[in-house]
Write a protein that binds this DNA or RNA. Structure first.
Lengths: 166, 166
DNA sequence: GTAGGTGCAAATCGTTTGCTGATTC
DNA sequence: GAATCAGCAAACGATTTGCACCTAC
């Protein structure tokens, strides 16, 4: 069985185990989340679901994603500008690396972080339940594009206009 | 001179140095940011500004905070549920510890993190320009409150209802 | 005097919700 | 056959914006 197939089976069993119904729309969302690279927006999920179920509504996608999030089977990467992303394959805290130009997100390997929550808990008395580590930068492709644009004013304007919040 | 006084002078000089006018409303926002604990919401800033300038509008507070953010003099802690906070004293990346019950935010001491951006840059080819590390947990006060509430159903309902997104 | 800033209200946009008819189990 | 779910459209809430008037310089 494929990795995404196993993940899909798990999601289905968790859903049914809690007494939720497996509608075609939900199954489509689960499939997409199980097979994704882990950084989909709701709009992206919606677009892919509609290929199979054109009458699916955006609200249903939101409801399903929220349901999975509450069950701990999807990790929400929330951003204040509304560009939220969802990871249905690794629904536990892990570092992310986000390109501020093209919004691509990857999972970098970062060493020796597992002790940090315990360290913070010990020094502050807080009970740590979650954490998040994001790096923001410019991916190699966007760096190349910027270099190619050179120092002409059009390139500078493009760079100015691509500044985003995070 | 006090620390917040020095910080205020710095903010004023940066603003004027870039040709921006120092209006009473802006000065009030700068004072509050310079004197704050570093984790104010826009609404909190607005409420404090209005004590001195009751006719100040929320839009002006937003504009001033955005201006300072673009100048790199305020750190925005954006959250996807809209509860954004602003730090006018330490406008550079540093870890935060957020209570998911009362929303209190403190700056924990976390060791040996400065090498991480370089490590990620080396292994991925990204040019890292920013990063963010947040810990989410329950502060000692809220832990005590939950223990006092005990295992009665009212306490459990209170805990259920206080779950927030992050 | 004038460019820039303020206040107001309306617009924006991702997300949530109320409701009615349809569907899973 | 019910309780749950989907679709729709309206509501929501933080933030942004257009515009007419005002004011710091």
């Amino acid at each position: 069985m494929t990795e995404s197939g196993a993940r899909l089976d798990h999601l289905v069993s968790v859903l049914k185990g809690r007494g939720y119904r497996l509608t075609p729309q939900r199954k489509a969302v689960l499939q997409i989340l199980a097979a994704s690279d882990g950084h989909l927006s709701v709009e992206q999920i919606y677009a892919r679901v509609k290929k199979d179920f054109p009458m699916t509504s955006l609200a249903t996608v939101y409801k399903t994603v929220t349901l999975l999030k509450e069950m701990g089977e999807v990790l929400e990467l929330g951003f204040s500008d509304g560009g939220n992303r969802y990871d249905g394959r690794k629904p536990y805290p892990h570092p992310h690396l986000i390109c501020i130009r093209c919004r691509k997100i990857i999972d970098p390997e970062v060493t020796a972080l597992s002790h940090l929550p315990q360290e913070v808990a010990s020094s502050t008395g807080y009970r740590i339940v979650n954490h998040r580590l994001d790096f923001f930068g410019i991916c190699p492709e966007c760096q190349a594009a910027e270099n190619q644009a050179g120092n002409n004013s059009a390139g500078q304007a493009a760079r100015r206009n691509s500044i985003r919040r995070w």
